[in-house]
Simulated assay, not measured.
Amino acid sequence: MKATGKDVYRLADGRRVPYVTCWSAEKVLPGRIVRHPRRAGIAYPDEVRTDRDIERALWVRQGLGRGGGEPVMAGVHPLRQRQCMADNACQVCGHPAVLDQRGYVFLMRSPSGVPVREGERTVAPPVCAGCVPEAVRDCPPLARGFVAAHVGSYEFWGIAGIIHDPHTLSPLPHDVAEPLPQVAFEDPRFCWTLAARVVVSLRDVTPLSVEDLLSLCADQPPRTASPVDEALAAHPAFNAPLDDPLAGPQAEALLADAIFGPGTAQVIATRSGSSRAADHCSASTPEDIA
């Protein structure tokens, strides 16, 4: 399933697997939820600084192994979603999504066709002009109806994740239509939520018709491998035998370095035998850790 060199990841029918998509090898890693010892909220008993972001949100632990196993087309990897939002990157190819310094294109599923509004919230990162036709054509959720907008800017609003009961620490029931409820930074439930997505609020919104969308993106060639894929393609860790015990940790450390800058990787060994590379740049400060 995984292509080699600088080729993109594609399905057997030629469709590209979006950059933010999960793969079956990227397992959700063990992480027992406990009460934070010093303040209200949840924590991991073995918590490290990379389990939280700069807003002190506790994040789900999920392995890194893009291209491993089969793509889970309905799944979104938390780290890559967060990276795309932070870096203004396209969710399909991973390249910068800005349109000639004029803002970004956002696509949202909407069977009813209600236009995107000012201040609307989303967990879907932007899409670059070159990937818009592909996304509209190949994305299963968009096939049931979508709306588009040109967005001048967006700001971080909160997180989406699993809210836990403050008394029992059990996950609270949620609406089937919203498996990951959205919680604002200032919401009292924020500290009781295990984050899986960043939520942003859109600003300077201009709804786009299909004709306007395609015109805006005309003559923009689709991009191939993401900058991260290109940086990693020739590295020995990605060409090592599958039974090499160092291949996984080396590849994941390199991925974190490629995303967040040299020297930022922390590969965290888990009791399951997997490893996890996490965001150093947006981690909480040491005194925030349990």
Rank of each mutant, 00 (worst) to 15 (best):
K2M: 14
A3K: 09
Y9M: 12
R15K: 15
R16S: 10
T21N: 10
E26S: 08
V28C: 05
L29V: 03
G31D: 03
V34N: 06
P37G: 10
R38P: 02
R38A: 14
A43P: 00
Y44L: 10
E47K: 06
V48T: 10
R49K: 11
D51K: 02
R52Q: 10
E70P: 03
M73G: 04
G75E: 09
V76R: 08
H77E: 00
R82V: 01
M85G: 09
D87L: 14
C93M: 05
G94P: 01
H95I: 03
A97D: 00
Q101R: 13
V105F: 09
F106S: 03
G113W: 09
G113S: 08
P115T: 10
P115H: 07
R121E: 11
G130A: 10
G130K: 00
C131W: 00
E134H: 06
V136A: 14
C139G: 08
R144K: 12
V147S: 10
A149N: 07
V151L: 12
F156G: 05
F156Y: 12
I163A: 14
H164M: 04
D165H: 05
P166Y: 07
P166M: 07
H167P: 01
P171C: 07
A184C: 02
R189V: 03
C191P: 01
W192R: 01
A195Y: 06
A196E: 09
R197Y: 14
V199M: 03
S201K: 10
S201Y: 00
S209T: 15
D212T: 07
L214Q: 15
S215T: 13
L216N: 04
C217R: 02
V228M: 13
V228T: 14
L232V: 04
A233W: 12
H235V: 04
H235E: 13
N239V: 05
D243I: 00
D243E: 08
P245E: 07
P245V: 08
A247V: 10
P249W: 04
D257V: 01
I259E: 15
F260A: 09
Q266D: 13
C281S: 15
S284N: 04
T285A: 15
E287H: 11
D288N: 14
I289R: 07
